[in-house]
Amino acid sequence: MSIKFKNVTKEYKTGTNSFYALKNVSFKANEGEIVAILGPSGSGKSTLLNILGEIDRATDGEIMFGDLNVSKLSDKELTKYRRNNVGFVFQFYNLIPNLTAFENIEVAAELTKSPLKIEEVLEAVGMLQNKNKFPQQLSGGEQQRISIARAIIKNPKLLLCDEPTGALDYNTSKEVLELLDKINKMYGTTIFIVTHNTSIASMCHRIIKLRSGQITDVKLNKERISPKEVEW
């Protein structure tokens, strides 16, 4: 699914002041791409991703998913759209406590008519042996794998990851990146990765740079390397 942002603005009003978390952001991304969103803290990366994932509303502008203008949808329609098409991976995993790894994935699987097989996805993220463990019993990297499994179980067209390696060490981070790359190849999922880490961008097809809510640079990555080779 191709993505198009046209003059997207997010404004926060505090009293009489207004603050633009995003200002006239426009870009395009093609189906099946891995897109990196880079920028310093507070530049609006998460805001952009959340608007992309329909869990936050833009103040102004137009968002197209393929031929569908999602900025025109009602809240209900958005939820329905999100439910079928968007997967989220959070920085702090956000697994539901009191549910096993398997059940956490099931919770998301339940939402769509034709989810992937839970076992298959667990296998893909290398967590099959941990399926009956509770989140508290898993390491951060393992939790993030489950979180990725949960995001892709509904075979979303769009997978959004906000600092997916932000809480992980170097080796685990690389494993997670490899996993994302593998998913992109296996299912053709369009993936957005928000990160501070410029090195991660080198494994992506497209790189969007943000500063103070505005895009400073969008470029295609011609010398794309595999996540194994990413170093920092």
Binding site: I55, K80, F88, F90, I96, V107, L111
Partner: peptide
């Protein structure tokens, strides 16, 4: 709150 937010983000109504 966090769990509710997560479920919401996952697409629960």
């Amino acid at each position: 709150i966090k769990e509710i937010g997560t479920l919401y983000a996952l697409g629960y109504t």
